[in-house]
Amino acid sequence: MSDLVAIVYQTEAKAEKVRQRLLRLQKEYLISLGDAVIAVKTDSGNIKLNQLVNTTAIGAATGSFWGLLIGIIFLNPIIGVALGAASGALGGALTDFGIDDAFMKELSTTLEPGNAALFVLIKNMTADKVLKEIKDAGGIVLKTSLDETKEQILRDALAKAAQPLTGEQPQGAASS
């Protein structure tokens, strides 16, 4: 079973730095990620999701290939590529991979403008080594599906390293 962890950072760049660390740790087999998404609250109050996997682009590429193949069979490869890319992009855009987008947007409404939340879906990990690598980035735990003991260990490690974002926790930051 996977665990969800959402941590708030002062900036999108800081959240991206932590995500890149987690991806490096995944290459070292210390963590296995199901998804890692950064949600940013813009100055206008909108929530922007920076997905790890762009399903629209993957769908368009896959659709183009199959469209080309079918187009060659029916002697019209250009139309086949165009139709394949369009249908693949549409299918990719409608696919929700990993963490539910609506859930992330709803939780991110509590962020201050300019802050970013890193949502990570963890399949499994070597907790002590992963925590050692990310604790210096700080952050505030927004939400987790970890048990209370593990969640408190995470909160304590991040709190030691970070200066407060705005002096207070975002609304709902204490929920789990």
Results as ranks from 00 to 15, higher is better:
residue 1 M to D: 06
residue 5 V to E: 11
residue 7 I to D: 11
residue 9 Y to H: 15
residue 14 K to H: 06
residue 17 K to H: 03
residue 18 V to T: 14
residue 20 Q to L: 00
residue 22 L to I: 03
residue 22 L to P: 04
residue 23 L to R: 07
residue 23 L to D: 04
residue 23 L to P: 01
residue 24 R to C: 01
residue 25 L to R: 07
residue 27 K to G: 12
residue 29 Y to P: 00
residue 29 Y to N: 06
residue 32 S to G: 05
residue 32 S to E: 12
residue 35 D to A: 11
residue 38 I to R: 03
residue 40 V to Q: 12
residue 40 V to D: 05
residue 41 K to E: 04
residue 41 K to S: 03
residue 42 T to K: 05
residue 44 S to L: 12
residue 44 S to P: 00
residue 50 N to D: 08
residue 50 N to T: 00
residue 53 V to C: 03
residue 53 V to Q: 03
residue 61 A to N: 09
residue 61 A to G: 15
residue 62 T to D: 00
residue 63 G to P: 04
residue 64 S to D: 00
residue 66 W to S: 13
residue 72 I to C: 10
residue 73 I to P: 01
residue 74 F to P: 01
residue 77 P to Y: 11
residue 81 V to N: 08
residue 83 L to Y: 03
residue 84 G to D: 09
residue 88 G to I: 09
residue 88 G to R: 06
residue 100 D to P: 04
residue 100 D to A: 15
residue 102 A to R: 12
residue 102 A to N: 08
residue 103 F to A: 13
residue 105 K to S: 10
residue 106 E to K: 13
residue 107 L to R: 15
residue 107 L to T: 03
residue 109 T to Y: 14
residue 113 P to H: 08
residue 116 A to T: 05
residue 116 A to G: 00
residue 117 A to C: 15
residue 118 L to V: 06
residue 121 L to V: 01
residue 121 L to Y: 04
residue 121 L to R: 12
residue 122 I to D: 06
residue 123 K to A: 08
residue 124 N to Q: 15
residue 125 M to R: 10
residue 126 T to Q: 14
residue 127 A to I: 03
residue 129 K to R: 13
residue 135 K to D: 09
residue 136 D to A: 12
residue 136 D to T: 13
residue 137 A to I: 02
residue 138 G to L: 04
residue 138 G to S: 00
residue 142 L to C: 01
residue 151 E to P: 02
residue 152 Q to S: 09
residue 152 Q to R: 13
residue 152 Q to F: 05
residue 154 L to P: 09
residue 155 R to Q: 10
residue 156 D to Q: 12
residue 157 A to M: 04
residue 158 L to E: 15
residue 158 L to P: 15
residue 162 A to K: 13
residue 162 A to C: 08
residue 166 T to A: 09
residue 172 G to C: 07
residue 173 A to S: 15
residue 175 S to V: 10
residue 176 S to G: 05
